[in-house]
Design a protein around this nucleic acid. Structure first.
Length: 261
DNA sequence: ATGGCTTTCTACGAAAGA
């Protein structure tokens, strides 16, 4: 089973890219972030036409997450527990249940950016991460295979940035953000890509500005975190870097994990 | 760089993103 995550930066602007990616890679599951689209405007017919079942959580202008699956989706859960007042569309969870196969729980995550750090936006990021840690504890208690896939807006280590000094003080690289990401790993989650390679220069985001792509000034902020039961199934991880060179690209590219069965 | 692009919105500049 192939599970992909991709921040598309507007599902409407990226629909043709999504259909091309789906046709070429044929992932079983695609977790999307930054739909920037309300539910009623989601291009469901086109995506269903490509063979996917859809769970989506949209909102006007910003945010928005979806799970696309070639297999039936069950037990769809909307929103990250822990704050009933949080109205931002950043978390969606479902069980992907292949007919006659083993089910796997999948979440599509759009973790808050958190900049500027001297504002409530950074507090929101940190409290959102604390809620994610708490929710992960409850998921781990189920002792199931699950994947938390998405745009974490965290650069885990200096080797995950081409120019780490540029990010010192930024919400994506602040110690408080990195510590909470590490806390997720300390619970027992596995960073899928880092479990396969220690290689540097592996990035998933290049800013639209300042020729970041041409200069390969990237960062790795899109991650698939696996439960121990899912990590046992992991075969390989790849970054679909070539999509960043397409016409009118997202500033993020997909990351794909391949699991046995 | 006081974000150099890109996207969205009851738009025609501002806000958000990272």
């Amino acid at each position: 089973m192939q599970i992909a995550t991709w921040n598309v930066n507007s599902i409407k602007q990226r629909l043709e890219h999504l259909l091309a990616f789906a046709s070429t890679e044929q992932p079983d599951v695609i977790c999307l972030q930054e739909l920037k689209c309300q539910n009623e405007a989601f291009p469901a017919l086109e995506i269903e036409g490509a063979g996917y079942n859809i769970a989506h959580l949209g909102q006007k202008s910003f945010n928005g997450v979806a799970i696309l699956s070639k297999h039936p989706l069950e037990d769809i859960r909307i929103g990250l527990p822990g704050d009933a007042t949080d109205e931002q569309a950043r978390y969606l969870e479902a069980v992907v249940a292949p007919v006659g196969g083993a089910a796997i729980r999948v979440a599509s995550i759009y973790l808050p950016n958190g900049n500027p750090v001297d504002t409530p936006k950074f507090d929101y990021k940190l409290s959102w991460m604390d809620r994610l840690i708490q929710h992960t504890r409850s998921l781990l208690a189920l002792e199931e295979a699950f994947v938390l896939a998405g745009d974490y807006n965290v650069i885990p280590n200096a080797k995950d940035a081409a120019n780490p000094q540029e990010w010192v003080g930024d919400a994506l690289f602040r110690p408080e953000s990195k510590e909470r990401f590490q806390a997720l790993l300390n619970l027992g989650l596995i960073d899928a890509l880092r479990s396969c390679t220690d290689e540097a220069s592996l990035y998933t985001f290049w800013d639209y500005q300042a020729g970041s792509w041409q200069r390969n000034n990237g960062i790795r902020i899109d991650h698939l975190l696996l439960s121990p039961q899912a990590a046992d199934l992991l075969q390989s991880v790849s970054i679909a870097k070539e999509l960043r060179s397409w016409d009118k690209p997202s500033d993020h590219v997909p990351v794909i994990a391949r699991l046995k069965q």
